[in-house]
Nucleic acid binder design. Structure first.
Lengths: 199, 199, 199, 199
DNA sequence: CATGAATGAGAATTCATTCAT
DNA sequence: CATGAATGAATTCTCATTCAT
């Protein structure tokens, strides 16, 4: 007979951390807030994690590795280069759609927090830029994209636009709706690619 | 008759704040760090500013109002809509070129720090997005830009790309050079507009 | 038939405690350090001992009772009083020679730690002073020792000198060698009994 | 006109620290205990000292440098070598007589706390041993002391005896009285220089 | 016996801000 | 204007101890 599912307090703590980080921001949340949200004792957070920082790092690494895999997969899968970029945009937008709190935390507290965790994870973040740049470079080689824009430059433009989009949603600068997510993604790709493609 | 210019300790403090915020980040700098950098006693910071936050706010507001004016001026000045966006990009890129520390602080600590000062200044930040959106909307009306992209959406894409570019420079993800600044700005406009313009 | 000797985890824990207490000091060692050193789960420490303090107490009492017995035996055995003191010195020096870590712990963490365990075991420690004092008193009665020094006072002088000697070895203030141990003990007795000035 | 005497909160804090360290022991006293005893705000302790450790270090260094000076002065002053040792003993005993709390703290928390501050100040402590050893060595050269005891060894014996004496007073193992202090010092010198056995 | 997850009290330290001089 | 001593709230992290399995 199957054992009762283990409480998996570690996961509980991570999930709770997402909720409170999203609500209050990393700096404003005390470790006790995480513990309270998770319904566990204070010290248990330190049983599973070295520090408060470590909790956020774990959250970031977990998610970012999926993004890196998705980008690399999009490239490896082949197909029209515009579709490859679309796949990347889709992955990111869907990540937000299905877990907006987590993506909010990752973008606000890591990716765009260049003086704190952004610095710590610069290598991994840069790797995303470079993987996207590779898609662009491939597209240029095959003639799908114009040649006069440096791949890394185009990658930054693309990624910056996507992230700005999520930021807009996160902070209610632009409205969201389920239909909107897909439309937004399409528009984004259209905007960027119709510029990238040769005339 | 004008008095001899006072040492203007207030300005000294603001400038010192830019330097240390850029170096250490806002959270990691103590009021005494600012005072040390400025060469004044740290009580003096409180003579001129209500709080540490207030110093950053002042820095942001000072600069951001220039940006808002520049965007609005770019629009008011008329001319091809593509050139209006180029003027905006030029202003931002030049702001960075001539005072990279200040722009670093503004972007890292305010514009992209959505859980702290970004929240506080959301209204002003949003106003920039909207002013850029207005340029796009005007362009659409005049037929210079395609109609199927919401102006605010296009604005976010454009601004996101510009900011990502600066971030790349700030954190050495992409190399910088004086020639590079102008070229980058051109490429950015090309990338975005050749996608925005009707075929 | 005798059972195979049990692993005797209790002893393992005590021995491990000696090693880590000697290395890091009592305050700086966590219960988990003891358990790690002993190769057991740290809950087991609490199976055998009431608390971390209790482990040190056990170590001290075990060893100190031997010392008390040795002092009392040295007196009971009779013989020249100078030899009785020599026997005490020999026992203490040999205790260090054969288990320096244990003696280090006892001296550093109990005997000379007057604000913590020294307080707790003051009665037993004082008993050692008094037993040595009794040897002196006997010696005075028999004319072997001068009468103008209070026995307890002389005892403190003697014990203080011995302990200082061990401390010197423990902290490498004075060099050690096997020959040195015996010589040191002899010199100590000579110094105390004959004095520094030539006869 | 002279200003009102400055409150000298720094001194107040040091004095308060002596009192609470002596009463409760270093480990058991919280920084707030020191502040309360001194009648100042919590944070002021950190205004004047880097840490709680730093407070004790200051106390030790202040006092120990006086001891070192006294030993060296005793030697430099010349006179019978026995008197030189007596001068050292007098200085130490009087230090205790006039400020028993401070000496308690220094002995209990530094000099005999070999796993914590004793380690930190080993160099200075050793220097005292060596300065006393120098007196002994001089005495041997001049024929005042026997030659078969290594100077450092004799120094350790002497110092150990003195410290044990203070410890006895501190922890009420041996009774104290003003007359007792001088007598004790004399007996100590007698014991070490003449020996326990009658001449 | 043995394990190590879970608990939570406790303490040091930081630093923005106030205010007397 | 200018100084920096004084304040004290706020929070992280440690670790002895308990206890369910």
């Amino acid at each position: 007979m199957a054992k009762a599912p283990p409480a998996d307090k570690r996961r509980q703590i991570l999930d709770a951390a997402v909720a409170v980080f999203a609500r209050q921001g990393f700096h404003a949340t005390r470790v006790s807030d995480i513990a309270d949200e998770a319904g566990v004792a204070y010290g248990l957070v330190y049983h599973y994690f070295r520090s408060k920082d470590d909790v956020l790092n774990e959250l970031f690494v977990e998610r970012w590795s999926l993004l890196l895999a998705a980008i690399e997969e999009a490239d490896r899968a082949g197909g029209p280069h515009r579709e490859r970029l679309a796949a990347v945009a889709t992955f990111i937008v869907d990540s937000y759609r299905y877990d907006p709190e987590l993506m909010k935390v990752i973008i606000v507290e890591v990716t765009r927090a260049a003086n704190s965790f952004g610095q710590t994870h610069l290598v991994e973040i840069r790797r995303a830029y470079e993987s996207i740049a590779k898609i662009v470079a491939d597209g240029q080689e095959s003639g799908a994209f114009r040649n006069d824009v440096a791949p890394l430059f185009a990658s930054m433009t693309f990624y910056g636009a996507v992230e700005q989009l999520l930021s807009g949603w996160i902070f209610n600068v632009i409205p969201t709706s389920d239909a909107g997510y897909d439309e937004a993604k399409d528009l984004l790709v259209t905007t960027i690619c119709d510029g990238l493609e040769p005339r």
